[in-house]
Simulated assay, not measured.
Amino acid sequence: MFLDLNKGMTLDLVKEDGQNLHKVDVGLAWDPANTGKDVDLDLSAFFLHRGRVLSLDDVMYYKASPAAACFRYAEYSGDSRDGSEADGDDPDEFIKVDLDRIPADIDRIAFVVTIYDALRSNQTFGVVRSLVKIEDGVKGKNLATYRLNTDNSVDTAFIIGELVRENRGWSFKGIAEGRDGDLNDLLRLYS
């Protein structure tokens, strides 16, 4: 059983026995285009210090250096250019976060999806069926799902939500906000 993630929804990641989840996986699934040009979606994460990205070491994305600090506590699947890495709703791209290893000065992790070169290719989320999954990274249990749908048909960038460190542990806050822009535009929101 899992939840459909909605804007403003908070998913508590503290288990019934009071223990925190140790790992959270965020995956992005989409299918290659049946007609027209394939769409290149990109899943990225911003590791935030008091709500801000301090350097590119805090950005996990398709061109990030494996030497960047964020790779010490998170894993990136690599870039899928057309959504053909997995079948159906299995993730074509994912970011796996080890919550136990996140430095204390990182209080939030924002997850975003963008369309690579959307302006030049004249593509929006309206031309592709896509799905975001949030899972327990240890048990593989699906915790929440968000489908980009017709509400996002004119958007080229999307803020999924944020992992937020709170007194009793981590939670996932759904933002579900589409935008017209690219990864740099989203980065400016957090800089």
Rank of each mutant, 00 (worst) to 15 (best):
E162M: 09
P103E: 14
D155A: 09
D185Y: 05
A64S: 11
I175A: 02
A68L: 08
F46S: 10
A68I: 11
S44H: 09
K133Y: 03
Y146P: 15
A69W: 14
T124C: 03
A118M: 02
K133F: 05
I115T: 03
V39M: 04
L43S: 04
S55Q: 09
L54T: 15
I102L: 10
D98L: 14
P91G: 12
A144S: 07
L148M: 06
M9Q: 14
R179P: 00
E162Y: 03
V112F: 09
F2D: 07
D180Q: 09
V24C: 14
I159A: 04
A74H: 13
G88P: 01
A45K: 10
F111H: 07
K141Y: 10
D90N: 14
D25H: 08
E166S: 11
D40H: 05
D136R: 06
I160K: 00
D17F: 01
T10I: 02
R129H: 05
V138D: 13
P103Y: 12
V39S: 03
C70P: 08
V24Y: 14
N184L: 13
S80P: 02
P91E: 13
V164I: 14
G137T: 06
T145Y: 01
Y61A: 06
Y61F: 10
A74C: 15
A45C: 10
L43Q: 08
S171A: 05
P103S: 11
D42T: 15
L21E: 01
G83W: 01
V128C: 00
A68E: 06
L28Q: 01
T10Y: 02
V138S: 11
L183G: 04
F94N: 03
D182C: 00
L43C: 08
D42G: 07
D87C: 15
R188T: 14
N34I: 14
V154S: 10
L3P: 01
D185A: 03
L119S: 10
A29N: 02
K139Q: 14
K141V: 13
S84K: 13
S77H: 08
H22C: 15
D151S: 11
L119P: 00
K15Q: 09
